[in-house]
């Protein structure tokens, strides 16, 4: 059974519907899946999450969460989803424990009842349970927010950009926690602007300007990248990029870490690229074959 079904969802903003946030989006998420929605800021990720958590009404289209319609059965959905908004939205003037207690009680449960579910997250902030939530560090706030979203044992968990603004170590920890939660059978939808996090999901949807570019497993997305990819480095990076883009055999070139990634139109053009590097650059130039990752795929999909 699918935990989340989205069919042809359209959402526009503005009086004249001039801003299209979601443009005919459809996808399914199966039970117990860790599904990533990857896209830049303003792609429509938050609008999608708000529709699925019954906070926002779509213009048209249908969506089901855990077998319930988001418009008709919103009351049932509110009982069984956990939502962690992109912005920290717990009470800063209440302590860690008070926040957790409050959210437990309004779901008619208690910390004790579901302690096993949040234990591996909550133990990390439990030493600070008397501290006001507003005085926690970014990573700890994140853990508290996740605990609060989980305290009623939701069947589907929506995490809107949970790792934005969190340091690298906390990010890694956070994804570890998600894995543990997945093992407990909770379906997780997570949105993120970071491409490197895509590989940690079971499946990802690449979204841009309200359109889904591709839905696949991280492997599948990378495998679908069929063009030859090279990495080039020299002491004159900026002129190199400009010159590369002018060549006929180059499909695309863009900065990628300390290298430029060069997408070739055809495998047979390799000698042309080698020739180009020799002609135009000094000895410091480095040319090597590169393995595409999600970011390369995203850039390729964006340009098409």
């Amino acid at each position: 059974m699918n935990a989340v079904i989205v069919e042809n969802i359209i959402k526009t903003y503005g009086k004249k519907k001039e801003v299209t946030a979601l443009n005919d989006i459809s996808f399914d998420v199966s039970q117990g899946e860790l599904f990533g929605i990857i896209g830049p800021d303003g792609a429509g990720k938050t609008s999608l999450f708000r529709i699925l958590t019954t906070l926002l009404l779509a213009d048209s289209g249908k969506a089901m969460v855990d077998g319930y319609d988001v418009v008709k059965d919103y009351k049932a959905i509110r009982k069984r989803v956990g939502y962690m908004p992109g912005r920290f939205s717990l009470y800063p003037d209440l302590s860690v424990e008070e926040n957790l207690n409050f959210f437990a009680t309004i779901f008619n449960t208690s910390i004790k009842e579901n302690y096993d579910l949040i234990k591996h997250i909550y133990v990390q902030i439990e030493p600070f349970k008397d501290r006001k939530a507003g005085k926690l560090s970014g990573g700890m706030k994140q853990k508290l927010a996740l605990s609060c979203a989980l305290i009623h044992r939701p069947s589907v968990l929506f995490l809107d950009e949970p790792t934005t603004g969190v340091d690298a170590v906390s990010r890694k920890e956070f994804w570890e926690m998600l894995k543990t939660l997945k093992e407990q059978g909770i379906t997780i939808l997570v949105s993120t602007p970071y491409m490197d996090e895509a590989g940690l999901c079971d499946r990802v949807a690449l979204i841009q300007n309200g359109k889904i570019l591709s839905i696949n497993t991280p492997r599948g997305i990378v495998d679908s990248f069929s063009k030859p990819l090279w990495a080039v480095k020299s002491s004159r990076m900026l002129p190199l990029l400009k010159e590369l883009l002018q060549e006929d055999f180059v499909e695309d070139a863009y900065p990628f870490g300390e290298f430029h990634h060069v997408v070739m139109k055809d495998q047979s053009d390799e000698p042309l690229l080698r020739q180009f590097i020799e002609d135009h650059n000094n000895d410091s130039a480095v040319l090597q074959a590169a393995r595409p990752d999600i970011e390369d795929c995203f850039i390729a999909l964006m340009k098409n």
Binding site: L55, P85, Y91, I106, F107
Partner: peptide
């Protein structure tokens, strides 16, 4: 303003 109403709204309150 601090966004807590969002969190409240997804609860069955």
């Amino acid at each position: 303003e601090i966004g807590t109403i969002e969190q409240i709204n997804v609860t069955p309150i």
